[in-house]
């Protein structure tokens, strides 16, 4: 088969999948809601080849979540030590849409380059990937970052102190801080905390009302599909196989609930994107919480071993007393 025919076949099947996707969009909502109601883990698949960089998802995200955006009190309280604790104020830069900020939880990253002798330009909607074993939620010392039953990772803005540990332990440095808001202002604003951390919460309020996340609903290309994780992962694998493509997010950090499917390898995409603050990478990520299972087993085994040691010690004492 010539490569042209092969591509035509691929395109044909792709078109079929797109049409199926459009049909699916109509039917996916009840399925998603049902999955959410059944407390099933939800995942999204992003077929990035179909993204046309129209920005509809970014605008929809901002509109759907604007009531959650911070309204900081100014002037900000002095924080100690000033050289080490920086004010992070995005309230005067609310219109920034080319990176993640507390006012922009989704942005479109563009990767432009050459792969296998062909030029490519792909657009990748970037936001929190909602890890299955999220270090941000596991390591939050204050219980503000939590994992919900449907796999959404949320930061509770009522109690977040803005220490920023969630960003430090996130492999993609996703959460972003706004100074001058939140509980820390009522505690010890000079000595602890620095605002609230913000990131995508998968439009949890819309999901509970039986609606799709805004970015998914508004996309004219039906780029994203949401549903039970097993089904979405199966679809992502089928699509990747179909386009001879690659998946990002299924294995990263031990598995996330976001699967990017691309015809270009992600290491190639990663080389051709702007990376930096608010603009995450696409590198392979090892499971940062991988040792939790082993360590928890140690926590269970240690007291059992202690009891055994205690029994042996008591037995030895008894024998010693009997001898004497």
């Amino acid at each position: 088969m010539s490569s042209k025919t092969k591509n035509a076949d691929k395109l044909s099947r792709r078109n079929f999948l797109s049409l199926a996707g459009a049909g699916l969009a109509a039917s996916i909502l009840p399925g998603t809601v049902e999955a959410a109601q059944k407390n099933q883990e939800l995942a999204t698949m992003l077929d990035i080849e179909t993204c046309i960089n129209c920005g509809e998802c970014v605008r929809a995200c901002r509109k759907a979540n604007r009531n959650k955006f911070p309204e900081p009190e100014k002037p900000f309280p002095d924080m100690t030590p000033q050289q080490r604790v920086r004010v992070e104020d995005w309230s005067e830069k609310r219109n920034v849409t080319d990176r993640l900020t507390p006012y922009n939880w989704l942005f479109i990253q563009t990767s432009k380059g050459n792969y296998n002798g062909l030029d490519f330009e792909l657009h990748i909607p970037r936001r929190c990937l909602h890890c299955q074993n999220p270090p941000c939620a596991n390591l939050c010392p204050w219980g503000a970052a939590v994992r919900e039953v449907n796999g959404t990772i949320r930061i509770n803005d009522k109690i977040c102190l803005g220490g920023g540990k969630c960003r430090d332990v996130c492999p993609w440095l996703i959460p972003h801080r706004q100074t001058g808001v939140g509980l820390y202002l009522d505690l010890l604003p000079r000595f602890a905390g620095n605002g609230i951390m913000y990131k995508c919460d998968r439009c949890y309020q819309r999901l509970t009302q039986g609606q799709l996340p805004a970015c998914i609903e508004v996309c004219p290309m039906q780029l994203q599909t949401i549903g039970p994780r097993k089904e979405i992962l199966k679809q992502a694998r089928e699509l990747a196989e179909d386009i001879n493509g690659f998946i990002y997010g299924d294995q990263e950090n031990g598995g996330t609930n976001t699967f990017y499917v691309s015809p270009v390898p992600f290491d190639v995409l990663n080389k051709n994107i702007v990376k930096g603050p608010g603009s995450p990478h696409l590198e392979p990520v090892k499971n940062s919480m991988a040792n939790s299972e082993f360590l928890t087993a140690a926590l269970v085994g240690a007291p059992i071993a202690g009891l055994a040691a205690g029994l042996l010690s008591l037995k030895a004492d008894k024998q010693k007393r009997n001898k004497s």
Binding site: L139, S288, L299, G301, A302, G306
Partner: peptide, 26 residues
């Protein structure tokens, strides 16, 4: 180093639990 301290906390907890269980039995 948050990850290092996370692991360290678990290890120290395991040691503490070993001794605590032994004392509790005694």
């Amino acid at each position: 180093d948050y990850h290092f301290n996370h692991v360290l906390h678990y290890i120290a907890a395991a040691v503490m639990l070993f001794i605590t269980a032994k004392w509790a039995l005694t």
